[in-house]
Design a protein around this nucleic acid. Structure first.
Lengths: 188, 188
DNA sequence: CGCCTTAACGCAAACAGATTGCTTTAATGA
DNA sequence: TCATTAAAGCAATCTGTTTGCGTTAAGGCG
């Protein structure tokens, strides 16, 4: 029996808000469960019983913040749409805050559900862009292809090689996935 | 003034060994610093002073275990070499143990140094394979291209979508990076 | 509308891991 | 061998975590 409404919902909202507030006040690394509980007007045991530990709570909050709040903008062509989306994605995700959210989402995630949700967000956004292109009659790759050739390389570098990432890298990846291979140049 | 030898080295080796032993005995999630310290014949404060916290210690150990112990085998052609390497990489990294190591390496890694080291290991192995191909006179892509189109997609799926990964996925990725784009099929 | 069941929360005590000042050991260089 | 000092040991303290039990209130039902 799950109880999604009423007091439980208020506690969840209050705790999430407390995490966001305190993270911006004292910094993410200084967060503790008792501190969050006090700000949320809740006892620590409530947090531990619901989320298990600090990492799972942070993972929960991170996934919410990584959820796109709006559909990708329509620039008229697949190339422009994908480029703009990739540019924004890289920009947001490679920032210190973005990297912290990604790490948190991956971290406190025993069953992989939160990570899967993050990936689903990106896939959904890309799906919108590609469906739009199909509606225009433009030839377009599949969602999985874009994930493999655009999202995955950006995410890999964000996580494993944070240095030297810039807009032109996103541009090269998008160009690569849209360009017939003969004319392609190395994205390195 | 750093002291890499003598007692410090013994403590480091002893603690690392304790982590590996205990991880296989009681499971990674049950590890605690006091437990590790006792097994290593060391006081907890020593571990905290040297590694900061449990996550950084586990990150340290994880990176060591992710280091390849041998050069990629030579199968005679670039295609075979890369395929075999990618297959083994995916196999090792997508296992529960492999995923735990990757997560640990990413996790307790404030400055990104450990994650960078992991990426460098892969780049080095790929570099060997590609240099071998060049020695044979085979045409070969650059290391960065292979990382973008083979390593990154595998790692992305290991971290964000652990389901449905198999050998054929690695094969498709390698085929994709070695095949002139006109004849390419979608890797999805 | 009010009662019943029980999930979820509050409280507080007990526990365990993390931190720190001070002392002691031993690695390095002269 | 001696002087220096990084690193380890020890122990007290502090803070975060866990848990048993009583209380509150959400959701279901007559």
């Amino acid at each position: 029996m799950v109880r999604p409404g009423g007091r439980s919902a208020r506690v969840q909202a209050s705790v999430h808000a407390a995490v966001r507030e305190l993270a911006s006040e004292v910094g993410r690394d200084a967060l503790t469960v008792p501190m969050i509980a006090q700000r949320a007007g809740v006892t620590p045991s409530t947090v531990y019983r619901r989320w298990g530990d600090l990492q799972e709570l942070l993972s929960d909050v991170a996934v919410e913040r990584l959820r796109p709040d709006t559909a990708p903008q329509d620039h008229g062509t697949l190339s422009c749409d994908l480029t703009a989306w990739a540019e924004q994605f890289l920009d947001e995700m490679s920032s210190p805050a973005g990297r912290a959210y990604i790490r948190d989402a991956l971290l406190g995630d025993p069953d992989g559900g939160n990570a899967g949700r993050c990936s689903a967000y990106a896939a959904e956004q890309i799906g919108v862009v590609l469906a739009r292109a199909a509606g225009r009659g433009e030839p377009a790759p599949g969602v999985e292809t874009v994930i493999d050739q655009v999202v995955a390389p950006m995410m890999y570098r964000i996580l494993f090689r944070p240095d030297g990432l810039d807009t032109s890298y996103a541009h090269r990846l998008v160009a690569g996935v849209l360009t017939p291979a003969g004319e392609r140049v190395s994205p390195g």
